[in-house]
Design a protein around this nucleic acid. Structure first.
Lengths: 233, 233
DNA sequence: CAAGTTATCAAGCGATCTATAGAATGTCAA
DNA sequence: TTGACATTCTATAGATCGCTTGATAACTTG
């Protein structure tokens, strides 16, 4: 009866370690990057604008919280999100915060510029199967290489202006990037529209797509009454 | 294009505030208590063994993170979980940590003593509808009053020994408490069994039940047999 | 084996967090 | 108004955190 308090403390201690991992913007940025795919320490340092030593230190905090794995590759160490649960947790936390932020002040939306037409996962899967659109991944190419939506072609946002010609003029272009709070796809759509092409933005990014695919692994043609989970409207 | 970084930082900043809220065992304990129902500051202080001033301070951290609401009631202030999303987040974080803790070391299980027979939500709903079991809520009575499973009667764990006679001898007794990591229901089941009565434990607590009911409000009739947890050595 | 990369460790310093105690505020009831 | 009570604020000291710098370790290549 007194092991109770002890074990409860142990549990809360463990949760607090995880909480701490979420309590620094630098670590959140690292998590956000890792959600796109595995990276080495100094890639992460570069991408997040931190020194290698500092990045390493933060990664160790994440490691202690069990949120990332690491693996030596010769002279470098590659970190990755630990598992699907961690990704899910990160996305949940991010979305809750984002929703709140958006409610209180519209800041989160504003920076994305004017609204851009979006489409959802199901419509994309549908039309991708019919082949009547072209899907582009506008993230940096190494993120594309680490994983991307099947059927997408890589056109990093920085290269889009020079590569407009590659895209067929008669089909709608759909762009996606890191997720709902990444501006790449917004930029891409605006550029495309400025060039007179029909374009829209996928409303999710690679990490969310990946998670969703895992639940409905086959080609989600038109999802006939998928009983994934009972959910009353 | 540079509002991007700014807004992203704002988002991450907001998430970090939430992370910080999760980063102290004292606050986690407060959250855990609030998951059972609204409470005033010094009730919370008493329950968590902290001074009122300190409790107030931590509650303000939670408030700043948007995770609790507060309401003046005459001379006292009653805090409550902000919304369902927060509850969901808390449960998710707790479960992930608990699962990990249980993997690495079995500590989380051990304090619960020997395993106790459990039953799931669907079976409970089923049999509750048929009326062939008696459901008892063994949490402190004010938590029962703040919300409980429909059809349950309140028998706080401390009163159980004196009130055994209230329970019909010919029906199975099912006990529930705060959740999977609370020992009350385990104790109750062991006491009941020691008294020669058939008893089992609901595998979730009030917060989880409440959440689940919101999604499937009607009575969830029957579902295929649920695999029980396997027992460890 | 030596030189060069990459990552981690160790120490240090300022900033932040935590808990305590005492003062101040707000509310109710007389 | 005054007194009683619940809560919050303020000040403080000690602990922890976050980033930097310089040294060390692990590994590859010449």
């Amino acid at each position: 009866m007194e092991g109770q308090r002890q074990a409860k403390d142990a549990l809360f201690e463990a949760i607090a370690v995880m909480g701490k991992a979420f309590a620094s913007t630098v670590r959140l940025e690292l998590l956000d990057l890792l959600a796109q795919g595995p990276r080495t320490v100094d890639e992460l340092g570069d991408a997040s604008g931190q020194s290698t030593a500092n990045t390493s230190q933060h990664l160790q905090t994440l490691y202690a919280a069990g949120m990332v794995t690491r693996e030596r590759e010769g002279t470098r160490v590659r970190y990755a999100l630990a598992d699907e649960e961690t990704l899910r947790l990160w996305l949940a936390l991010r979305d809750v915060s984002a929703r709140r932020l958006a409610e209180v002040e519209r800041a989160a939306r504003e920076y994305l510029g004017g609204d851009v037409e979006e489409l959802g996962r199901d419509e994309l899967a549908d039309r991708l199967a019919r082949g009547d659109l072209v899907l582009i991944d506008v993230r940096p190419s190494h993120e594309y290489e680490a994983g991307h939506i099947d059927g997408a072609r890589s056109i990093p946002i920085a290269e889009l202006p020079q590569r407009l010609a590659e895209l067929p003029a008669d089909q709608e272009v759909v762009a996606y990037c890191r997720g709902p709070f990444c501006a790449y796809a917004h930029d891409a759509v605006r550029q495309l529209q400025a060039a007179g092409r029909p374009a829209r933005r996928l409303d999710i990014g690679w990490p969310e797509w990946q998670l969703a695919q895992q639940r409905t692994p086959a080609k989600p043609k038109r999802t006939p009454a998928k009983p994934k989970r009972r959910r009353a409207a």
